[in-house]
């Protein structure tokens, strides 16, 4: 461990709050957009479906870096509104992963057996009640594992925010690089370990949610792969 290990660690740790805020904000936005776009993809209205489809394919079809640069460097020139880097980052993280999440929501809703909808229909639930009370709670369980993976992807994507000078973990590390050439291995190990810990936190939270959700519908939770033997 290098002599100035303390200084390096504390500098990189200063970036941690920004990484966490970006990830949490991005995840929150992802959840909202995934639900909205996912249900819109299943709408009876063709217009609504088309709009949702354009959003999903447009965001999945372009690179996240391009989206970030476009929002941060190009959009201000068009509308005269300069976004704070962190907000621009959260917006892109949410918009991008929301497009992937929309497909997760759509798939999970469609996987709920038709007989459940008929059971709800026979009890005269309205379409909205059928979705909210019967279909979504069951689809929710199916969504959790893929959403867990999506959130890990999102966490990894927060590193892109260093491209627009958000002082998150990677950006802090890069600030150290010119003057700490000999300590580079240490710097990157610290960064990687922080991401690993954050990823484990996300996995653990998702695992808890999954267990609770499985219990709610009286099903045995499935074991996850990562550290699956222990959990």
């Amino acid at each position: 461990m290098p002599d100035n290990a303390n200084r390096i660690v504390s500098t990189i740790l200063e970036g941690l709050p920004f990484t966490v805020i970006a990830a949490v904000g991005g995840i929150a936005l992802t959840i909202v957009l995934s639900l909205a776009a996912g249900l819109a993809l299943l709408s009876r209205s063709r217009a609504v479906r088309v709009i949702a489809r354009v959003y999903v394919e447009g965001l999945r079809g372009t690179s996240e870096v391009v989206q970030l640069f476009w929002l941060y460097f190009a959009l201000p020139a068009l509308v005269g509104l300069q976004l704070v880097p962190l907000y621009a980052g959260i917006l892109v993280l949410g918009l991008n992963h929301g497009a992937y999440g929309a497909e997760i929501v759509r798939g999970a809703v469609r996987a709920v057996p038709r007989s459940q909808v008929e059971g709800a229909l026979a009890l005269s639930f309205t379409p909205a009640q059928r979705m909210r009370r019967v279909v979504l709670p069951q689809a929710f369980v199916e969504m959790l594992p893929p959403f867990g993976n999506l959130f890990i992807q999102l966490l990894k994507s927060t590193a892109l925010l260093s491209f627009i000078q958000v002082t998150e973990i990677v950006q802090r590390g890069e600030q150290l690089r010119p003057t700490h050439g000999a300590d580079l291995p240490f710097i990157y190990v610290v960064e990687l370990l922080l991401y690993l810990v954050l990823a484990l936190v996300i996995t653990a939270v998702m695992r808890l949610l999954e267990r609770a959700a499985c219990r709610r519908i009286g099903r045995e939770p499935v074991r996850n792969r990562f550290l699956g033997g222990v959990g």
Binding site: Q116, E118, G119, I217
Partner: peptide, 14 residues
């Protein structure tokens, strides 16, 4: 006014 009991019960697991 109409109710139905299904072959596969169709109880809501949630």
């Amino acid at each position: 006014r109409i109710g139905m009991v299904f072959q596969q019960f169709n109880l809501f697991p949630n």
